[in-house]
C-alpha cells in the first residue's frame, strides 16, 4: 500500500449526501477477479452527463473529493475504494462515512477525513477555484486563505496510512495469541465448531 502523508491539489466539490457504493461503482463493474481498472466505472451514472464534475478540465484527476453526510453507505464492495483510487483520489472529506467504506478506504491508502458540515461548506466554496491541503501527520485541512480545520483519526488507522502497512503481516505477529484463543474456545465451547 502506498504511504500517505501530505496531499495537496484540487478538491472535487461534490457535496452530495448519502452517496452509496452502488453510485460510486455500479454492480455490473463488479464482475471482475482483479482490483484494477475500476476508475472507468466510477460514478458511471453521474458521468453519463458530459458536463459532470469528475471529467471537467478543473477536476479530472483531482486527488481530493469533498462529499456530504454518510458517504459510501450501502454495499460493502471494496471496489468503491478501488474505483476512487483508480480515479486518483487519495483523500475524501465528508461529515461522516459508512463504517464499512471508511475501513475499506484506509486499507487502500485513501484517507477518509471527517469534518463538520460548516467546514465542508467552506471547503466546497474554496475548492470551486483553489486547491486544498491535507496533512495527515498534523491532522489538518488548510487552504491558502488561512482556513485551518483540524480532524480526528483513529491512531491505528493513521499509522497504517502513514507507513503504508499491510494489516495481515501485522496480525500474523499475534499468531500465538490466536492459537491460544482457539484452544480455549475448543475447551470451553466445543459445540462452536460446525457439527457436520
Amino acid at each position: 500500500m502506498t504511504p500517505l502523508d501530505k496531499v495537496e491539489g484540487r478538491a472535487i466539490p461534490f457535496g452530495l449526501k448519502n452517496v452509496d457504493t452502488d453510485v460510486i461503482i455500479p454492480a455490473h463493474w463488479l464482475k471482475t477477479t482483479t482490483r484494477e481498472g475500476m476508475g472507468r466505472g466510477a460514478f458511471e451514472s453521474l458521468r453519463a452527463d458530459p458536463d459532470n464534475l469528475f471529467d471537467s478540465a478543473d477536476f479530472k484527476g483531482a486527488p481530493i473529493l469533498i462529499a456530504g453526510d454518510n458517504f459510501g453507505c450501502g454495499s460493502s464492495r471494496e471496489h468503491a475504494a478501488w474505483a476512487l483510487g483508480d480515479l486518483g483520489i487519495r483523500v475524501v472529506i465528508a461529515p461522516s462515512y459508512s463504517d464499512i467504506f471508511s475501513g475499506n478506504a484506509v486499507k487502500n491508502g485513501i484517507l477518509p477525513v471527517v469534518l463538520p458540515q460548516a467546514a465542508i461548506d467552506r471547503l466546497m466554496e474554496v475548492a470551486a477555484t483553489d486547491p486544498v491541503f491535507v496533512d495527515l501527520e498534523h491532522q489538518t485541512v488548510t487552504t491558502q486563505f488561512q482556513d485551518r480545520f483540524a480532524f480526528e483519526i483513529d491512531p491505528f488507522r493513521k499509522m497504517c496510512l502513514l507507513e503504508g502497512l499491510d494489516e495481515i503481516s501485522l496480525t500474523e505477529k499475534s499468531d500465538a495469541a490466536i492459537g491460544a484463543y482457539e484452544a480455549r474456545l475448543d475447551a470451553e465451547h466445543p459445540w462452536m465448531r460446525p457439527a457436520a
Binding site: 471494496e78 464499512i100 496480525t171 500474523e172 490466536i178
Partner: peptide
C-alpha cells in the same frame, strides 16, 4: 466486510 478484510479473515481468522 471488504475484500481486504476477507483476505485478512481467510489468513488469520480474526
Amino acid at each position: 466486510i471488504g475484500t481486504s478484510e476477507v483476505e485478512h479473515v481467510l489468513a488469520t481468522q480474526t
